[in-house]
Write a protein that binds this DNA or RNA. Structure first.
Lengths: 244, 244
DNA sequence: TGAATATTTGGACGATAGTACAAATATGGT
DNA sequence: ACCATATTTGTACTATCGTCCAAATATTCA
């Protein structure tokens, strides 16, 4: 890591940390989601958490283990919240409203996760964005295990609301949604203001509304003409896995 | 860098490289765009290019200088091609067709750049995607210099075709387009097939069509109700700079 | 050809990486 | 208070990082 102008304000709120393990996790989450996995050293994390480098090894064995634990912490609650919101969304009568609710059910937990303090969900989603770009190996595994079911559920729900549009197109558009979501959180000039809204982020709310509006419209677009240059060879050009 | 199963096929086509500088650039481009800047060492690049680590220093002084040179190589031709296509798109009579042409003018050069061989544009765009995620400092500067004008030109063109939609919304939707584009190129399971289409990539063509279709629909979506929770504090929540 | 220049080579430098480990210290139950 | 266990500390190890440099080699042009 090269940047970091000041002494980093990630440190403990009090002089003594009651639970160093949590402090390390929090510091690692913040640093990884800002600079990426490769650019942050174990020593950086330890210093930000006010801990000794050896402590990190003690609690998480390796740097990969630390990243893995961060994912374990967030994936469960986030997917649970998504399932709840999705179930509620499916009960919406009006088709247009239902589609919007479904998209919102996917997007909202990415911005504000479960019981975390302000910016918790945003931070983790930013982390996921950076990790997907860096092509992290550890993450690829946990993603495949954790997000596959949820993703399929969302595509299914969208397909139910838009039966006339081929699944193929919906998978692509869901893919685009995730890309837009990631990029929005990764772009600093927006994110900086995003996380500093009033309390839980008014500006983040605006970003969500823009994203939902654009996505709903994209999903409803007429499907691609199937009699085009067409998938000449690979029928699996659009894989089953999406929104991960 | 940790991965790389085989001996890497980036090397020279012949046994002796007529221009080692170019070989180093090509190898660096490939490795950076695959693993990110931080995960690739100068020695990795040298080995992939069949060169000596010292040669890299000789030609580009520093690792940052190497990255900078890659950007210098691509930004010019890419933006020139975009300007050409945009100028042509603005002359399209039908409004719907024009909007689609404008979006295509933005997306196409990102997939196949100027005179490069197959996958050249794709590779560079993938590099840009990873760099934006890693928040690379060197890149931020060159981006601000190079892409600002082009981006504004595109937003302007879109705004001319959709005068009833506030610029604010269009900036957001352009932002989402770039995010979707980046993520599409960064996601490996898609990209792998993407670059191996027939000749210039039939599957890449399909991805482009899906992206254009979705984006046009998103751009045309009705604007957000301006009487919402509203931008309570920051009027600059949506900065002027977008599509970068 | 020979001199001037451009490039490549191999090795070295200090800095920092991830991880390991023994000693020191804190903690909790009895 | 005592002991067993959990945690923290300081340090050390090896590996690799970006960069530098003098010598060796290739290239170019008068």
């Amino acid at each position: 890591m090269v940047r970091k102008p000041a002494k980093s304000n990630v440190k403990a709120t009090s002089t003594r940390k009651p639970n160093m393990r949590e402090a390390i996790l929090a510091a690692a989450e913040e640093l990884f989601s800002t600079y990426g996995f490769n650019a942050v050293s174990v020593r950086d994390i330890a210093q930000a958490a006010g801990a000794n480098p050896g402590s990190v090894t003690y609690h998480f064995k390796t740097k990969d283990g630390l990243l893995l634990e961060i994912y374990r912490r967030h994936c469960g609650p986030m997917n649970r919240r998504r399932s709840e919101l999705l179930a509620a969304a499916r009960r919406v009568r009006d088709l247009q409203d239902r589609l919007e609710a479904i998209v919102r059910a996917y997007v909202l937990p990415a911005f504000s996760s479960g019981s975390d303090l302000a910016g918790g969900g945003t931070r983790f989603t930013r982390l996921r964005a950076i990790m997907s770009a860096e092509g992290n190996e550890v993450v690829r595994k946990i993603i495949a295990q954790t997000f596959d079911d949820t993703s399929h559920a969302f595509i299914d729900a969208i397909h139910d609301s838009l039966p006339h549009i081929p699944r193929t197109d919906l998978v692509w558009r869901g893919h685009f949604l995730l890309g837009a979501l990631y990029y929005t959180l990764v772009t600093p000039e927006r994110v900086s203001r995003l996380s500093r809204g009033s309390a839980d982020g008014t500006d983040a709310g605006h970003a969500i509304e823009e994203l939902v509006r654009a996505t709903v419209a994209a999903l409803q677009a007429p499907p691609l003409d199937p009699a085009m240059p067409a998938p000449r060879k690979a029928p699996g050009a659009v894989p089953g896995r999406a929104l991960t």
